[in-house]
Every structure is written in C-alpha cells, then in structure tokens.
Design a protein around this nucleic acid. Structure first.
Length: 189
DNA sequence: CATATGATGGACT
DNA sequence: GTCCATCATATGG
C-alpha cells in the first residue's frame, strides 16, 4: 500500500498523484479493484465547495491524519474521498472515476448492467461497483487490508494529465481542481 | 420533528 | 442538452 507520507502533502499534489494508483477492496465475495483515472481536490475553509467549511461528523476525517477515508452521501449516492495534507489545512480528494480491473463480474452484478464503461465512470457509480458505503467512513487506509490504495502495476507507464474545473459544484474556485488521465475512456462524462 | 440541501445518475427530447 | 427521483445530513423549531 502507499506510505502515510504520500497523503501528507498538498491536496492538489495528492489528487494529481493518485491518478494511476489502484483502489482495492477485498470483500468476502472476491477482490474488487480499479485504477484511479479522475480525481478532484477539496480543501480549506475558504473553498466554497469543500465540506471543510464546517467541522461535522462527515468532515471530521479531514482533521485527522491524511490517508483516511471520508464517505458521504449526495443525491442518494455514496462518494469516496481520501483525506490529505497535514492537520493545518483540512483537505480531501474525491475519487471520481476508476478503470475496472479485478472483479468486473461482481461489479456488473452490483450495478445491474453489463456495459463496462458504466461501472465506475462517476463518483456514485464507483462506490456502488466497489461496494463502498457509509460503513467505510473514517477508515485508516494504512490500518487494515480490506480497503487499500496501492501502486499501479505499470508505474513507469506515462500518461498525460488533464485539468479542469470541478464538476457539479454550485460554487467553484478560479483554480482548476479536477484531474484526469487524458484519453482514458473511463473518465466521467 | 420538519424541511432544505446537494461533490449524482438515469431517463428522456 | 433538460428534468427529476433519491436519501443521509445539517439545521432550526
């Protein structure tokens, strides 16, 4: 799995470097995994779209050490975030899309559809495919081996990183805080 | 308790 | 592109 220090950096950096990494969930039914192909950064009380504006049960992991999950519900979908940075600037990275790798049949079953491009090409789709719910809120990724983020298989493999404004937020910052792998067909939209 | 809200997804024109 | 069902939270009475 990734080192703690990976997550104790600027949230933008963590968001960008999470691209190409693998999210792995070892369930009783089988292993589910996918490569991260799209992320968004949220941090600090001055970010109008960030839950770090207020400290609640949901946003609490942002004040914990980086490398914890933050799972919450928007429009009847669970969204998975991973906390970042040191404690001074509470932040988290939203995982917006995955390229499915292991357990594709289980994912199809969970999603009730067979089109592989529709399994995890969106933040709510991927939690459904990966069987991640509110139960996983506040989990330390370095603490157990059920849910982990690990290095990609081809770490040398080059890919171009695209950047844009965050999707779906009611009020965004000037800075472009969405990152994605250019040309990857599992990026949302 | 009541109600407004939203970092969505799917169905539809 | 537009419309809207969905439900865990947060917040106010």
């Amino acid at each position: 799995m990734l080192n703690r220090s990976f997550f104790l950096r600027d949230t933008r950096t963590v968001a960008r470097e999470l691209l190409g990494k693998l999210l792995v969930h070892r369930t009783t039914e089988g292993v589910l995994s996918g490569m991260v192909v799209e992320t968004e950064a949220y941090f600090g009380p001055e970010d109008p779209a960030s839950r770090a504006k207020k400290r609640t049960r949901v946003s609490e992991p942002m004040w914990q050490q980086g490398g914890h999950t933050l799972v919450y519900m928007v429009h009847a979908n669970w969204l998975l975030n991973i906390t970042s940075d040191k404690r001074e600037i509470p932040g988290a990275v939203l995982i917006r899309a995955l390229e499915p790798l292991e357990g594709v049949d289980l994912m199809k079953e969970r999603r009730g559809m067979s089109d592989i491009r529709k399994l995890a090409s969106g933040p709510g789709k991927l939690t459904q495919s990966m069987e991640i719910t509110g139960e996983y809120h506040g989990v330390d990724l370095m603490n157990q081996n059920t849910l982990q983020v690990i290095e990609g298989k081809s770490e040398d493999e080059e890919f171009e990183i695209g950047r844009s404004h965050r999707i779906g937020v009611t009020e965004d910052l000037k800075e472009e805080l969405r990152f994605f792998i250019v040309g990857n067909k599992f990026v949302s939209r």
